[in-house]
Write a protein that binds this DNA or RNA. Structure first.
Lengths: 345, 345
DNA sequence: CTGTTAGCGCATTCAG
DNA sequence: CTGAATGCGCTAACAG
């Protein structure tokens, strides 16, 4: 509705041709005098170039499409923060679509974005299907997947197996022999399978007396809380939540039953959310840097856009965060109840 | 790069004119036979209409610009979820920009979006300045502000004063007389001033023996945690965190010092984050439904877009969530230490 | 109901 | 260095 002043108006006011104005706008050659005239005309008219007309010509939108599984999670927030942080300075903006954890909606969203003329697509995928692969090839625009792994498409992912392994080894070193892995559906390859398998490998390797039971929960506190009873019945020395949220729900359950953590049972998680540090006992966890992941993803996309597909460093570092929720079974003493160690820093 | 097949190609293949194809695409009149021909031609060519060309004509982008103060917060996630939930079914998509809590960047972002041709702008503002007002008037596109209040622009906001008041009254009823309000900078009008003033009003009204001290913190756990020492020195019977995060940080501090909540001191917050239910004691709080807020904001915007500026119901309901972190000073008994009441539901 | 004719606003040849 | 001319792909009158 607004957009009345066009390049033509500016040209007339400045007493030059439209092309001259266009050149002024696009770093073309233009004499100093006219340069000034045009500058002033633009200022006077309050001219703003029409986005669509420009894009129609240049075939470049400076728009990156992002498909997210859900919005209401800290993880996703961090990720977006990272992405934005590198995209924005480059003049790119993001269009956001939410797949609601559905593969179908995910594909649909990608379709929409592609149709919309975005320059590239970033998908925090819930699962890479054959169709995903097909599209990635068919469409000529760069597509980058996060969260899941697949050899046939470009992807960037936390090493869930390594994270699980690391935790497994740690708990083994702390003398634990019987763990319950409170995990999510196996349809989530990364979290549901790799993380778990990695854990089992780390926890069991090199010994025969280790045991890992599995209990399935959802991704949220509540569903974990509701499964806690079943977990407790298995009487492990440690509960491994596939995500920090799961562990938090379990911690709450134990608290309500006055079961002391870590004295009676240990609990660990994955994710490294800040809240893990404020609950008590503070949660020992493997921390992922989602913001960094977002930044790397965005950088990679930028590279692809500039044609240089040389692999940048795509390693996603993991940090082991040892806090208060694990008991060392190999030491004689039992940690004091209300641990007074500040862990907020 | 891709986009080779245009409406023209389809027209040729179907043996009709471009306009006919265009009509087919836009619900114009077209005979059944040609309809079928065109349908097939589109399918064969895999035609997709060019977004930019279309927008250039129609002057409608179906894009809503959203400016957010930050991304890494649960609040914002919920809000976005709500917005998306109503925008998406209507065929609108969102472009996201982050202001990083800076007024300047906020204005800048709005400018970019407007230039980009979005149909409307939604701003979760950090503070509405004169410049904001000016632009809202100058640009003809609908702009809706969230989070802050201003008589001269359209806005949608939680009633922070009411929320604060509600909490104040509750604590008064529980027999508390000395509170410390752990709040944020007053440059945040809504949270820094209204919420606090509302609280003070509710807490003090109708009596002379009430006292409220103020301690300033940031928005995050850690800065609250770091101020906790100072708060404790004031020796109140209850600490009122301006947000749940603040309260969580304080709760952690008390835990580390083995100060029993709520037996020795009570703690409350605002926001109603889920984590408030998993910590112990579970946090008593005034809950805001950010997702609902997002939905209302989006609906309102849609109304504006369709010209009917009749006020829809813009009340943002508050919910008082009474959990475990407040001691009733008027009753004789002291609540048991490890409360076994399930509060997760 | 359908084809023809015009632009939307801009970038980009191509001659000057 | 600059202006005139051309068309990106699509929609919207306009006459059939």
């Amino acid at each position: 509705m607004e957009q009345k002043v066009t390049i033509k108006d500016v040209a007339e006011l400045a007493g030059v041709s439209k092309s001259t104005v266009s050149r002024y706008l696009n770093n073309g050659y233009i004499s100093v005098e006219k340069q000034e005239k045009v500058r002033k005309a633009i200022e006077d008219t309050g001219f703003q170039s029409n986005f669509f007309a420009k894009r129609l010509k240049t075939r470049e939108s400076k728009l990156i499409g992002i498909v997210l599984p859900r919005m209401d999670s800290v993880t996703v927030g961090k990720l977006l923060a990272g992405i934005t942080r590198v995209l924005e300075p480059e003049g790119y903006q993001s269009i956001l679509l939410v797949s609601q954890l559905s593969e179908e909606k995910e594909l649909e969203s990608m379709q929409k974005l592609q149709q919309q003329g975005v320059d590239a697509i970033l998908v925090d995928s819930v699962g890479i299907t054959a169709e995903h692969v097909r599209r990635a090839q068919e469409w000529s625009l760069p597509i980058l997947y996060l969260g899941q792994q697949n050899p046939d498409v470009r992807c960037l992912k936390i090493d869930d197996a390594a994270a699980g392994h690391r935790m497994g080894v740690y708990l083994k070193q702390m003398g634990h022999k019987h763990a319950v892995f409170a995990g999510v559906t196996e349809s989530d390859e990364a979290v549901g399978i790799e993380r778990k398998e990695g854990f089992i490998a780390g926890f069991c390797e090199g010994r025969d007396d280790a045991r890992v039971d599995f209990v399935e929960t959802g991704f949220d506190f509540l569903s974990a809380y509701n499964q806690a009873e079943e977990i407790r019945k298995l009487a492990p020395t440690v509960v491994v939540g596939a995500t920090d949220n799961i562990s938090l729900g379990i911690l709450r359950y134990f608290h309500e039953r006055s079961i002391k953590v870590p004295e009676e049972i240990s609990v660990v998680g994955f994710g490294g959310y800040e809240v893990g540090a404020v609950v008590y006992p503070a949660l020992t966890t493997v921390s992922f840097d989602y913001e960094l992941m977002g930044m790397k993803a965005a950088s990679y996309l930028l590279h692809l856009l500039h044609q240089d597909d040389n692999e940048t460093n795509l390693d996603m570092p993991l940090t082991f965060v040892e806090r208060e929720s694990v008991r060392n079974l190999l030491e004689d003493y039992v940690q004091g109840e209300a641990v007074a160690m500040p862990v907020m820093a």
